[in-house]
Protein backbone atom coordinates (compact mmCIF):
# COMPACT_ATOMS: atom_id res chain seq x y z
CA UNK A 1 0.00 0.00 0.00
CA UNK A 2 2.77 2.31 -0.86
CA UNK A 3 0.67 4.94 -2.45
CA UNK A 4 0.25 8.59 -2.15
CA UNK A 5 -3.45 8.72 -1.66
CA UNK A 6 -4.21 5.31 -0.24
CA UNK A 7 -7.69 5.99 1.11
CA UNK A 8 -8.81 7.54 -2.13
CA UNK A 9 -7.44 4.61 -4.05
CA UNK A 10 -9.41 2.20 -1.96
CA UNK A 11 -12.56 3.79 -3.24
CA UNK A 12 -11.39 3.91 -6.76
CA UNK A 13 -10.73 0.21 -7.35
CA UNK A 14 -12.73 -1.58 -9.95
CA UNK A 15 -13.40 1.66 -11.66
CA UNK A 16 -15.18 1.37 -14.97
CA UNK A 17 -14.16 4.81 -16.07
CA UNK A 18 -10.43 5.04 -15.59
CA UNK A 19 -10.38 8.69 -16.49
CA UNK A 20 -12.57 9.91 -13.69
CA UNK A 21 -11.46 7.02 -11.52
CA UNK A 22 -14.24 5.20 -9.87
CA UNK A 23 -17.73 5.36 -8.53
CA UNK A 24 -16.66 7.04 -5.34
CA UNK A 25 -15.08 9.77 -7.34
CA UNK A 26 -18.23 10.15 -9.34
CA UNK A 27 -20.37 10.31 -6.24
CA UNK A 28 -18.02 12.85 -4.68
CA UNK A 29 -18.36 14.93 -7.78
CA UNK A 30 -22.09 14.62 -7.83
CA UNK A 31 -22.26 15.47 -4.14
CA UNK A 32 -20.36 18.57 -5.03
CA UNK A 33 -22.76 19.28 -7.86
CA UNK A 34 -25.68 18.92 -5.46
CA UNK A 35 -24.07 21.36 -3.03
CA UNK A 36 -23.55 23.69 -5.93
CA UNK A 37 -27.19 23.43 -6.77
CA UNK A 38 -28.24 23.98 -3.16
CA UNK A 39 -26.13 27.11 -3.04
CA UNK A 40 -27.80 28.49 -6.10
CA UNK A 41 -31.18 27.67 -4.62
CA UNK A 42 -30.41 29.08 -1.24
CA UNK A 43 -32.16 32.35 -1.77
CA UNK A 44 -35.30 31.29 -3.53
CA UNK A 45 -36.70 28.71 -5.89
CA UNK A 46 -35.12 26.97 -8.83
CA UNK A 47 -32.55 29.20 -10.33
CA UNK A 48 -31.26 27.25 -13.24
CA UNK A 49 -34.63 27.58 -14.86
CA UNK A 50 -33.77 30.96 -16.16
CA UNK A 51 -36.65 33.21 -16.87
CA UNK A 52 -38.56 32.94 -20.06
CA UNK A 53 -37.97 36.50 -21.09
CA UNK A 54 -34.63 37.57 -19.82
CA UNK A 55 -34.70 40.29 -22.39
CA UNK A 56 -36.41 43.03 -20.45
CA UNK A 57 -34.00 42.82 -17.59
CA UNK A 58 -31.46 44.58 -19.69
CA UNK A 59 -33.75 46.90 -21.47
CA UNK A 60 -32.61 50.28 -20.36
CA UNK A 61 -35.48 52.32 -21.67
CA UNK A 62 -38.38 52.08 -19.33
CA UNK A 63 -41.85 53.51 -19.17
CA UNK A 64 -41.33 55.00 -15.73
CA UNK A 65 -44.05 57.54 -16.28
CA UNK A 66 -46.64 54.83 -16.88
CA UNK A 67 -47.05 54.15 -13.15
CA UNK A 68 -47.53 56.63 -10.35
CA UNK A 69 -43.86 56.62 -9.43
CA UNK A 70 -42.87 57.37 -5.86
CA UNK A 71 -40.54 60.24 -5.26
CA UNK A 72 -36.92 59.45 -5.82
CA UNK A 73 -34.71 60.53 -2.96
CA UNK A 74 -32.55 62.30 -5.47
CA UNK A 75 -34.27 63.52 -8.60
CA UNK A 76 -32.16 64.19 -11.63
CA UNK A 77 -32.72 66.25 -14.72
CA UNK A 78 -31.06 63.70 -16.94
CA UNK A 79 -29.86 60.11 -16.96
CA UNK A 80 -26.28 61.37 -17.38
CA UNK A 81 -26.53 63.28 -14.14
CA UNK A 82 -27.85 60.22 -12.36
CA UNK A 83 -24.99 58.10 -13.68
CA UNK A 84 -22.49 60.79 -12.71
CA UNK A 85 -23.93 60.96 -9.21
CA UNK A 86 -23.80 57.16 -8.81
CA UNK A 87 -20.24 57.03 -10.12
CA UNK A 88 -19.06 59.85 -7.86
CA UNK A 89 -20.62 58.48 -4.69
CA UNK A 90 -19.01 55.12 -5.45
CA UNK A 91 -15.57 56.72 -5.94
CA UNK A 92 -15.55 59.04 -2.96
CA UNK A 93 -14.38 57.60 0.30
CA UNK A 94 -16.14 58.23 3.57
CA UNK A 95 -13.48 60.01 5.67
CA UNK A 96 -14.79 58.73 8.96
CA UNK A 97 -15.58 55.09 8.25
CA UNK A 98 -13.33 52.05 8.24
CA UNK A 99 -13.19 51.63 4.48
CA UNK A 100 -16.40 52.47 2.67
CA UNK A 101 -17.45 54.76 -0.11
CA UNK A 102 -20.01 57.44 0.64
CA UNK A 103 -22.73 55.61 -1.28
CA UNK A 104 -22.60 52.62 1.06
CA UNK A 105 -22.04 54.38 4.34
CA UNK A 106 -24.62 55.85 6.65
CA UNK A 107 -22.14 57.86 8.70
CA UNK A 108 -23.26 61.48 9.14
CA UNK A 109 -20.40 62.86 7.11
CA UNK A 110 -21.09 60.37 4.29
CA UNK A 111 -24.74 61.45 4.17
CA UNK A 112 -23.66 65.11 4.09
CA UNK A 113 -21.15 64.43 1.32
CA UNK A 114 -23.78 62.57 -0.68
CA UNK A 115 -26.10 65.54 -0.38
CA UNK A 116 -23.34 67.93 -1.38
CA UNK A 117 -22.43 65.75 -4.36
CA UNK A 118 -26.06 65.73 -5.44
CA UNK A 119 -26.23 69.49 -5.09
CA UNK A 120 -23.09 70.03 -7.13
CA UNK A 121 -24.18 67.59 -9.83
CA UNK A 122 -27.53 69.37 -10.00
CA UNK A 123 -25.68 72.65 -10.43
CA UNK A 124 -24.13 71.15 -13.53
CA UNK A 125 -20.60 70.60 -12.26
CA UNK A 126 -18.68 67.88 -14.06
CA UNK A 127 -16.86 64.93 -12.52
CA UNK A 128 -13.55 66.69 -12.01
CA UNK A 129 -15.15 69.77 -10.48
CA UNK A 130 -16.96 67.69 -7.88
CA UNK A 131 -13.86 65.64 -7.12
CA UNK A 132 -11.77 68.81 -6.75
CA UNK A 133 -14.39 70.27 -4.46
CA UNK A 134 -14.17 67.27 -2.12
CA UNK A 135 -10.38 66.92 -2.36
CA UNK A 136 -9.99 70.64 -1.51
CA UNK A 137 -11.76 69.96 1.76
CA UNK A 138 -10.85 66.39 2.69
CA UNK A 139 -7.57 65.76 0.85
CA UNK A 140 -6.56 63.07 -1.63
CA UNK A 141 -7.63 60.52 0.94
CA UNK A 142 -11.24 61.08 -0.04
CA UNK A 143 -10.87 59.79 -3.63
CA UNK A 144 -10.34 56.09 -4.29
CA UNK A 145 -8.22 56.88 -7.35
CA UNK A 146 -4.84 58.23 -6.21
CA UNK A 147 -3.42 61.36 -7.86
CA UNK A 148 -0.55 60.84 -10.27
CA UNK A 149 2.73 62.22 -8.97
CA UNK A 150 6.41 61.30 -8.92
CA UNK A 151 5.83 58.54 -6.41
CA UNK A 152 2.40 57.21 -7.32
CA UNK A 153 3.39 56.85 -10.96
CA UNK A 154 5.03 53.59 -9.86
CA UNK A 155 1.57 52.17 -9.25
CA UNK A 156 1.27 51.94 -13.00
CA UNK A 157 4.94 51.68 -13.96
CA UNK A 158 5.91 48.83 -11.66
CA UNK A 159 3.38 46.31 -13.04
CA UNK A 160 4.33 47.22 -16.61
CA UNK A 161 8.02 46.84 -15.80
CA UNK A 162 7.39 43.49 -14.11
CA UNK A 163 5.42 42.30 -17.12
CA UNK A 164 8.17 43.28 -19.52
CA UNK A 165 11.04 41.99 -17.42
CA UNK A 166 9.40 38.61 -16.86
CA UNK A 167 8.95 38.20 -20.60
CA UNK A 168 12.55 39.29 -21.18
CA UNK A 169 13.67 36.75 -18.60
CA UNK A 170 12.00 34.05 -20.65
CA UNK A 171 13.59 35.27 -23.86
CA UNK A 172 16.99 35.24 -22.21
CA UNK A 173 16.36 31.76 -20.88
CA UNK A 174 15.46 30.55 -24.31
CA UNK A 175 18.50 32.20 -25.79
CA UNK A 176 20.63 30.36 -23.24
CA UNK A 177 19.15 26.98 -23.95
CA UNK A 178 20.75 26.83 -27.38
CA UNK A 179 24.25 27.14 -26.00
CA UNK A 180 25.84 23.72 -26.22
CA UNK A 181 27.11 23.84 -22.64
CA UNK A 182 23.89 22.43 -21.37
CA UNK A 183 22.64 18.94 -21.56
CA UNK A 184 19.18 17.63 -21.82
CA UNK A 185 17.85 16.19 -18.59
CA UNK A 186 18.06 12.48 -18.33
CA UNK A 187 17.19 11.70 -14.78
CA UNK A 188 14.88 8.78 -14.46
CA UNK A 189 11.96 10.81 -13.21
CA UNK A 190 11.80 13.10 -16.17
CA UNK A 191 12.07 10.22 -18.55
CA UNK A 192 9.24 8.48 -16.85
CA UNK A 193 7.23 11.66 -17.15
CA UNK A 194 8.14 11.84 -20.78
CA UNK A 195 6.60 8.46 -21.47
CA UNK A 196 3.59 9.64 -19.57
CA UNK A 197 2.61 12.36 -21.93
CA UNK A 198 -0.39 12.58 -24.18
CA UNK A 199 -0.37 10.08 -26.96
CA UNK A 200 -1.38 12.86 -29.27
CA UNK A 201 2.05 14.35 -28.98
CA UNK A 202 3.92 11.24 -30.05
CA UNK A 203 5.02 12.56 -33.42
CA UNK A 204 6.78 15.67 -32.20
CA UNK A 205 7.91 13.65 -29.23
CA UNK A 206 10.01 11.28 -31.26
CA UNK A 207 11.44 14.13 -33.25
CA UNK A 208 12.58 15.89 -30.13
CA UNK A 209 13.83 12.62 -28.70
CA UNK A 210 16.08 12.41 -31.72
CA UNK A 211 17.31 15.96 -31.12
CA UNK A 212 17.95 15.10 -27.54
CA UNK A 213 20.07 12.11 -28.39
CA UNK A 214 21.99 14.15 -30.92
CA UNK A 215 22.65 16.75 -28.27
CA UNK A 216 23.95 14.11 -25.94
CA UNK A 217 26.33 12.77 -28.53
CA UNK A 218 27.60 16.27 -29.29
CA UNK A 219 27.98 17.01 -25.62
CA UNK A 220 29.86 13.78 -25.04
CA UNK A 221 32.19 14.53 -27.94
CA UNK A 222 32.90 18.05 -26.70
CA UNK A 223 33.64 17.02 -23.17
CA UNK A 224 36.17 14.50 -24.44
CA UNK A 225 37.87 17.09 -26.58
CA UNK A 226 38.36 19.70 -23.85
Amino acid sequence: MNRFFTPFLRYCRGSAVPGVSGSRAVSLTSLYAILLGLFMLSQSQAVLASETTATTSMNVEQPAAAVAAPQELQQFDSEQQRQLYLKLTAELRCPQCQNQNIADSNAVVAVDMREKTYELVQQGLNRNDVLDYMIDRYGDFVHYQPPVNRVTIWLWLAPVLLLISLFLLQLKRRANQITPKETYPHDSATQKMDTDRDEANKMTESKIQLNKELDQIIEHYRSKKS
Binding site: P95, Q96, V108, V109, R137, Y138, G139
Partner: peptide, 12 residues
Amino acid sequence: QRRLSLDLGVSG
Protein backbone atom coordinates in the same frame (compact mmCIF):
# COMPACT_ATOMS: atom_id res chain seq x y z
CA GLN B 1 -26.90 71.73 8.43
CA ARG B 2 -23.18 70.97 8.96
CA ARG B 3 -22.36 73.07 5.90
CA LEU B 4 -19.48 74.93 7.52
CA SER B 5 -18.22 71.63 8.90
CA LEU B 6 -18.19 70.13 5.41
CA ASP B 7 -16.37 73.17 4.03
CA LEU B 8 -13.79 72.80 6.78
CA GLY B 9 -13.26 69.11 5.98
CA VAL B 10 -14.72 67.94 9.27
CA SER B 11 -15.53 64.24 9.39
CA GLY B 12 -16.94 64.00 12.89
